[in-house]
Amino acid sequence: TEEVEKIVRELQKRGVSQEEIQRILKRNGIDPRDVEHVVRRLR
């Protein structure tokens, strides 16, 4: 989703690792598959 993408991009800008990003998003109830998808697209 748009929202997830924004969050991921923001965290990446701050130098947060992929694993940490995924952990944060999972904690916020976001589907890990969505996270994977977004992270892969932004690489």
Rank of each mutant, 00 (worst) to 15 (best):
L25T: 02
E10W: 10
L42A: 04
I24M: 07
E36D: 07
E19V: 09
E2A: 11
T1E: 10
R27Q: 13
G29S: 03
V16H: 12
R40Q: 13
V39R: 05
V16K: 10
V39S: 02
I24S: 02
R27V: 12
S17H: 07
P32M: 05
V8W: 09
L11R: 00
I24F: 06
P32Y: 04
E36H: 04
G15E: 03
R14G: 08
P32G: 04
L42P: 07
R40M: 05
L11V: 00
V35H: 02
I30H: 12
D34M: 14
G29M: 03
R33Y: 06
V4Y: 04
V39N: 02
I24V: 07
V8C: 03
E5L: 09
R33E: 09
I30D: 01
R41P: 09
E5R: 04
S17R: 07
Q22I: 15
V16M: 12
E36C: 14
R27W: 07
I21N: 00
N28L: 14
E19R: 12
R14E: 10
G15I: 02
L25E: 00
V8K: 01
V16Y: 12
R27T: 09
N28A: 13
E2Q: 10
K26G: 10
K6L: 07
E5N: 05
R9C: 00
R41N: 13
V8S: 01
E36K: 04
E5D: 05
R27M: 12
D34H: 10
V38L: 10
V39K: 03
I21H: 00
L25A: 04
D34Q: 11
D34S: 05
T1W: 14
V4D: 00
G15L: 05
R43Y: 15
R33H: 08
V35P: 01
R40V: 09
Q22P: 05
R23Y: 10
E19S: 12
V8A: 12
V16R: 07
V38E: 01
I24H: 06
V4M: 07
E5K: 05
Q18M: 15
R9H: 04
R9I: 08
D34R: 06
Q22F: 14
I21F: 07
E19G: 11
T1M: 14
I30Y: 15
E2S: 11
I7N: 02
I21S: 00
D34A: 08
R41E: 14
G15Q: 04
E19L: 11
T1H: 10
E20C: 03
E36W: 09
R40Y: 03
I24Y: 06
V8N: 00
D31S: 06
N28S: 13
V4A: 05
K26T: 14
I24W: 07
E20S: 08
E19D: 12
K13L: 10
L42T: 03
E3W: 13
L25V: 02
R9E: 04
D31L: 02
E20T: 08
E3A: 10
T1Y: 14
I7V: 06
I21A: 05
E5A: 08
R23F: 08
R41C: 12
